[in-house]
Design a protein around this nucleic acid. Structure first.
Length: 259
DNA sequence: ATGGTAGTCGAACTA
């Protein structure tokens, strides 16, 4: 089984590229972030034409998360938010979608950006991560054998080597953000991709020729529970997806699991 | 010297 995460930065603008990625890699489940549309605006037909089904969760032109999965799979226990997911300006935004595929519990997550160290959005970001970790810890306590993957755009660079120039950033690298990320490791999750694919960014800003200069960041992750980590047999960061016409500013992160 | 990217929506906001 192959699973992947990708911040597509508008699925309507990116549909041809997402489709060719699915055809090329044949991933079973793709968790998307920043679909930037409501479910009724999602380009379902493109996905159905190549044998995939879609579950989309979007409230407006911002944020939005979704799953595309091979049509023969039957997702179970769908959730459009995690337990006690915080709201921003009284709205629980479309930043999380969870479902179980072939017994593997998968969450596609778009963690709030933060905007600035003293911005209310940063408090929102930290609370989002804190509650996500608490909810996940609770599930793992109930069922230590749970095969779980939290995948998505975490908007955090956990290590200094995850940023091309530390001096240019305040958010994404701050101590509170990094502690919030480490909390997931403390409850037993592992960033499995890091060992298999070291020294590879997942995001390059559109501005200032960042991609040609390899001025990027590693902020997209697949965090696996102990039971699922045992099944990881391969991983890739699809750097080539940043090339060519009309790329997203993020590339897919792929995890291969044994059967 | 300025604006320098991309998306949504149709001015300004988000990243």
């Amino acid at each position: 089984m192959k699973i992947a995460t990708w911040n597509v930065n508008s699925v309507r603008a990116r549909s041809p590229r997402v489709i060719s990625f699915l055809e090329r890699t044949k991933v079973d489940v793709l968790g998307m972030q920043e679909i930037k549309c409501k479910p009724e605006q999602f380009p379902y037909a493109d996905f159905e034409a190549i044998g995939y089904k879609v579950i989309a969760h979007g409230l407006n032109q911002w944020n939005g998360v979704a799953f595309a999965y091979r049509a023969e799979l039957e997702p179970q226990d769908l959730e459009l938010s995690f337990s006690a997911q915080p709201s921003f300006k009284d709205v629980v935004e479309a930043r999380a979608i969870g479902a179980t595929f072939n017994g593997v519990r998968i969450w596609s997550l778009y963690v709030p950006h933060g905007r600035g160290l003293d911005d209310p959005h940063m408090e929102y970001k930290l609370e989002f991560l804190d509650r996500l970790a608490s909810d996940t810890a609770e599930q793992l306590e109930e069922n230590p054998d749970l095969e779980l993957c939290l995948m998505g755009d975490f908007n955090i660079a956990p290590l200094d080597s995850d940023v091309y120039d530390l001096s240019l950033f305040e958010t994404h690298i701050s101590e509170p953000e990094r502690q919030a990320f480490e909390a997931f490791e403390q409850i037993g999750l592992t960033d499995t991709v890091r060992d298999l694919v070291p020294n590879q960014y997942t995001y390059w800003d559109y501005k200032d020729l960042c991609f040609p200069k390899n001025n990027g960041m590693r902020i997209d992750f697949c965090l696996t529970s102990e039971a699922l980590t045992e099944r990881v047999v391969g991983a890739s960061i699809e750097r080539d997806e940043r090339k060519g016409e009309g790329p997203s500013d993020h590339v897919p992160v792929v995890l291969e699991l044994s059967d």
